[in-house]
Simulated assay, not measured.
Amino acid sequence: MTHEPQDADPDAVTVTETGVGRFQVEVLSAGASFLADEPAELGGLGSGPNPYDLLAAALGACTTMTVRLYAERKGWPLSRATVRVLHSRPSPQGRDRFAREVTLEGPLDDGQRARLLEIAGKCPVHRTLEAGADMVTVLAQPRGLEAPHGGGGGHLRDMEAACRD
């Protein structure tokens, strides 16, 4: 991929255009990297999941992990959990809808299956999506353009002064 390890911020997900294709981006998260993109029929290269696929993946991953954790804590015989997530929105102004199909494999009884399905509805990403979230966006300076420490930076300082209202 395109970034050096020192660019990785362990507390953030960083997404940067790759310069390949119209929409392809590189996602850096927790020491891993992958591509996201739009399908070819929408002008992308189809080289990775689109942003809504990533959101659905977050919901599916969190649901699966939460169900696994609960089953382990209870000592229940869950051999595998699979979550299939579908996303739809009736119109640009409509409310998004996520539908989950939870498959629980293993010799679980009906009560255990019902409880694990209930726990699926309590996963943190489910709760975040259900409650909504506050969004904060700020404009940051490109990393290569900060004024150097200890003097210098005159041209950048002059440009900033020229742009003041």
Rank of each mutant, 00 (worst) to 15 (best):
M159T: 11
G144E: 15
V125D: 05
L108W: 07
H155C: 09
Q141I: 09
G106H: 10
M135D: 13
K122E: 00
H126G: 03
L104I: 05
L104E: 04
H155T: 10
L104H: 02
E146H: 15
G132D: 14
G132V: 12
G132T: 12
L116M: 13
L129G: 02
G150H: 02
D134T: 15
G152Q: 05
M159H: 11
G151Q: 07
G153T: 03
L117K: 06
T137H: 15
G154L: 04
G151F: 03
H149S: 13
G154D: 12
G151P: 02
R115N: 05
D158M: 12
G154F: 03
L117E: 07
R157L: 14
M159I: 15
G154A: 06
A114K: 11
R127D: 11
E130W: 07
V125H: 07
G121D: 05
A147Q: 11
K122W: 00
L139Y: 07
A120G: 04
G153F: 05
L156A: 12
L104N: 03
L156N: 07
P148H: 07
K122H: 10
T137R: 12
V125K: 04
V102Y: 00
A147K: 11
L129N: 00
E146D: 14
G106P: 06
P148A: 08
E130A: 11
G150E: 05
G144K: 15
I119S: 01
G154M: 07
E101K: 02
H155R: 13
G111K: 04
L117R: 05
H155G: 04
L156M: 14
H155F: 10
G151W: 06
V138G: 06
T137A: 15
D109W: 10
R115T: 06
G152P: 01
G152N: 06
R100A: 05
G153R: 02
P142Y: 05
R143M: 10
E146S: 15
